[in-house]
Design a protein around this nucleic acid. Structure first.
Length: 856
RNA sequence: GGGCGGUUAGCUCAGGGGUAGAGCACCACAUUCACACUGUGGGGGUCGCAGGUUCGAAACCUGCACCGCCCA
């Protein structure tokens, strides 16, 4: 049943109206039966980015998620069975931080659970508040709040995506903290362990002292920070040696001095030892190529650990460990090996318990008193490694952590990963280079354990020996059937809960997994890997991964890695990479600025089709400037959507003759042009070039309304079935039918509205237009363009005369190719020309035009 | 320091060896008969700079400058 054409069509309310209809009709549901029947080749599966359910969605999300939806909608119209799930990334640090601020609490795992706990407040301003003001609560209470808040966030996110018109199958949703995700993440991890791809190691680990957690390479960020060189004096057998350091507080952790092997100044010292100032610890002087002769005095002190170069020296020169940095970022109370005498211990005690900042100040005083520091500290700016979400510089501490091999130490794996990269079609292609660079630059395995609370538990236990010490080398693993498990609340297999923590018993792993360890498995989670083989085989490998360029090194890479380790193949055929949104002044849109205008506000104010048009007009991989004060592209999109409604309504107002043929030459030429647009738009969508498809469609649509529709409307107004009338109306209606489907991916609401005036079902489950369905196709004879040129001449003449376009013309002479004669009547009608004379010439020109005298 | 993109009209961008393009903005004109969230027309550019290839370069090559991003 078709709907009535409204008196005055409008965009307002279309989102709610059609969103509801699509939901009840199941327009975007994954049609599994059809997929099974037609086979995997018929399925177009999308690996969607689960947005972080911790803050708010911004305009950049709308941008890239629309790009993904355009591809899905095109493929759906093209007859594919679409598998288009949506997930929420709700585990991890961002959620913890948001919960802390929103409810004014913080997690203290040592506290007992409080039944019916009521947080001090709700709806904090989401700015970092002081830990001292937060109420400490148990891990279980904390996690309950995490779940409560993320469910609320996710509801809002879903509402926004529905308003935007994402053609997601809302029955296919998951949460990265949900049981299914935990089961998948733990299953994949267990298989990694069994194949030797996941392992534990005691290793220097980049450590964030604020969050008290280990940090992976992918989460690092360099920041330029002020620092200062301190010149301090070491004592050798043949005199003193001065070194420059920015970290004098690490002096007790000093294990060696290094200089470049070719550095003549220090060559004689290699192989000798020197004594550290204040502590008198004997350390070797050694050569290493990473020492920079031009930096400071050219000889550096190696501490365990000041920075990542120290780690390299420590490993390659096989130096001892004298760690002094605690997990809280304070100097540990016990002095390291080598500091043995009363006197030295007393000096060390002055530093113990101090923060890096205070320890530095005190040791400078001590060195100055002892005369072992030369001059004052000299301020410099230098890059310092930070956790990307952290506020304090990272420290390096030695801890036992879980790792997954990522090719950094395994050339065979690395080359396989590079190979997989070549098997994915990147859009645009140059984005592949970022993946390649990342893989080639990996220098450590993937650290996946995190000392946090809200995430997927690492599913292992450790047996305790007779002395009650954990035997890390023989972890106890759960059976896959028992997943998901939480080792902190469930007893290890073969043990009972009362053996927890007892000699001869077990202890559970406290750490959780890095959030990327879960989100790297989005294809497996959404496709129900190892749980629903039929579904899995239909959707994997996926057709498309869609994401932003900023997470190529994290999400894209880690997904390829997990797919390679688990399945030995690339996870997708295509990767569509969206650019990001920049301010009018070319800066990356910041939250503080971008949040002034919320996506929901944009959608409400301009309409979803208009916002989608804006996103669709940018190509993949291209950054888009966006000025919330003046959203030009959005307004243009809105105008297009309104034009679609009105043009269609106009066309449907003409008397229509069933089965009429398109006989008039002008009508036939318009259809030939339309066929060319269909061909071109199809080719563009096949290449994931939605912007090009939109451009060619839109351009011809305006030609269609401004020129063709004007040229034939007088003819179309005539009595039904009269000379040429039926031809015009048949051509108009066919063109609208085709245009609607060409524009449906970009303007799903306006096109659906119009489509239902004359069709029973949804436009979105109709079929993509083809050249074959247009009865006239082939090369255009140029008639429409000739008429367009003649129109410009006529209109120009009237504008020149400051006359209305409706002013009648008593006589006009138009030159042009002889073909123009085929449209003589239409030209005369649109120009209101009583007597139109055509003369043959190479180019179109209005030679003379005589306007009727004004009535008054 | 290495890599990747970019630099075309006031703005946002397309194009890509053969007469410089679109939309917006601007200016002028029109105005109730699909559309005022309107229609028509107009002005506006040494295509970042310097070399080279070519009959011909905005496009291809080389170098440089500047902007952005990624990695050291």
């Amino acid at each position: 049943m078709s709907h009535e054409i409204p008196e005055k069509p409008a965009l307002e309310g279309l989102e709610a109206k059609w969103g509801e209809t699509w939901e009840t009709e199941g327009t975007y549901s994954f049609d599994r039966a059809r997929a099974v029947q037609l086979g995997k080749e018929s399925v177009f599966s999308v690996d969607t980015p689960p947005p972080t359910a911790s803050g708010s969605l911004h305009i950049g999300h709308v941008f890239s998620y629309t790009h993904m939806d355009l591809a899905a909608r095109y493929q759906r119209l093209n007859g594919k069975v679409i598998f288009y799930p949506m997930g929420w990334d709700d585990n991890g640090l961002p959620t913890e931080r948001r919960v802390q601020n929103y409810y004014g609490v913080r997690c203290d795992p040592t506290l007992p659970y409080i039944d019916g706990f009521v947080p001090p407040f709700e709806g904090g301003d989401n700015k970092s508040s002081k830990a001292a003001d937060q109420v400490p609560i148990s891990r279980r209470n904390f996690i309950e709040l995490c779940e409560k808040l993320t469910v609320e966030d996710e509801k809002q996110f879903e509402d926004l995506w529905r308003t935007l018109g994402l053609s997601v199958d809302w029955k296919q949703t998951y949460r990265t903290i949900g049981d299914e995700s935990q089961r998948t993440a733990q299953r994949a991890f267990l298989r990694n362990v069994k194949r030797g791809e996941a392992y534990q190691a005691d290793a220097p680990t980049l450590w964030d002292v604020t969050f008290r957690t280990a940090v992976a390479q992918a989460e690092l960020e360099d920041k330029e920070m002020p620092g200062a060189y301190h010149s301090i004096v070491f004592h050798g057998a043949n005199g003193d040696i001065t070194i420059d350091t920015t970290r004098p507080e690490l002096l007790p952790a000093c294990v060696a001095l290094v200089a470049h092997p070719e550095d003549e100044r220090y060559k004689p010292l290699f192989g000798t030892t020197v004594r550290t100032p204040l502590f008198g610890v004997e350390v070797p002087v050694m050569p290493h190529h990473l020492a920079q002769p031009d930096k400071g005095t050219g000889i550096a002190m190696v501490c365990t650990f000041g920075d990542t170069t120290d780690v390299t020296w420590w490993r390659e020169l096989q130096l001892p460990t004298r760690a002094i940095m605690g997990f809280d970022g304070r100097i540990v109370s016990e002095a390291p090996a080598g500091i043995d005498s009363e006197e030295q211990r007393a000096i060390y005690a002055e530093l113990a318990g101090k923060t890096v900042f205070s320890a530095k100040a005190r040791i400078v005083e001590l060195l100055t008193e002892s005369g072992e520091m030369i001059g004052q500290a000299r301020p410099i700016q230098h890059p310092v490694k930070f956790f990307e979400k952290g506020d304090k510089p990272l420290e390096i501490v030695t801890t036992r952590q879980w790792y997954i091999s990522n090719g950094a130490k395994d050339e065979s794996l690395r080359s396989r990963l590079l190979e997989r990269g070549t098997q994915v079609d990147f859009h645009p292609d140059f984005m592949r280079v970022r993946y390649d660079n990342w893989v080639e630059g990996l220098n450590g395995d993937w650290l996946i354990s995190r000392q946090r609370f809200f995430g997927v538990p690492i599913p292992v236990w450790y047996p305790l020996d007779a002395d009650g010490n954990p035997v890390y080398d023989s972890p106890i693993l759960p059976a896959e059937e028992s997943l998901p498990v939480d080792p902190t609340s469930q007893a290890a297999p073969g043990y009972t809960e009362d053996q927890r923590g007892k000699a001869g018993g077990f202890q559970g792993e406290l750490d959780i997994m890095d959030t990327w360890a879960t989100s790297s498995l989005t294809p497996q989670i959404a496709g129900r890997w190892a749980e629903d083989d039929e579904l899995w085989n239909l959707v994997f490998p996926y057709s498309l991964r869609s994401q932003g360029q900023d997470i190529i090194r994290t999400w894209l890479f880690s997904t390829v890695l997990r797919a390679e380790l688990e399945h030995g193949q690339a996870p997708w055929a295509n990767a569509g990479i969206s650019g990001f949104i920049v301010d009018p002044d070319r800066k990356k849109m910041s939250k503080s600025k971008g949040n002034v205008v919320t996506p929901q506000g944009m959608l409400d104010e301009h309409g979803s089709d208009a916002v989608r048009y804006w996103a669709a007009s940018s190509r993949l991989g291209t950054d888009a400037a966006f000025d919330p004060e003046n959203p030009k592209q959005i307004k243009i999109g809105r105008r297009l959507a309104i034009k679609v409604l009105n043009a269609a309504k106009f066309v449907y107002s003409f008397a229509h003759t069933d089965g009429a043929e398109v006989t008039e030459e002008l009508d036939r030429d318009m259809l030939r042009r339309l066929a060319e647009v269909v061909r071109s738009a199809t080719e563009s969508y096949e290449k994931f070039d939605h912007a090009r498809a939109l451009e060619v469609t839109e351009q011809f649509f305006w030609t269609f309304t401004d020129d063709y529709l004007e040229l034939v409307k007088e003819r179309a107004y005539r009595e039904a079935g009269s000379e040429g009338q039926a031809s015009a109306v048949a051509a108009l209606r066919l063109a609208i039918d085709v245009f609607l489907r060409l524009l449906a991916p970009v303007l799903p609401f306006a096109t659906e509205e119009v489509w239902r005036w004359t069709h029973a079902g949804s436009i979105h489950t109709s079929s993509w237009p083809t050249v074959a369905e247009i009865p006239v196709n082939g090369e255009s004879n140029g008639l429409l363009d000739l008429c367009g040129a003649a129109l410009v001449g006529i209109r120009g003449a009237k504008t020149e005369a400051k006359a209305s376009q409706k002013t009648p013309v008593t006589h006009a002479v138009i030159e042009g190719p002889a073909a123009l004669a085929a449209a003589q009547a239409d030209l005369a009608a649109v120009g209101r020309i009583v007597e139109l004379e055509l003369r043959t010439a190479d180019t179109v020109a209005v030679v003379s035009i005589v306007l009727e005298e004004a009535a008054e």
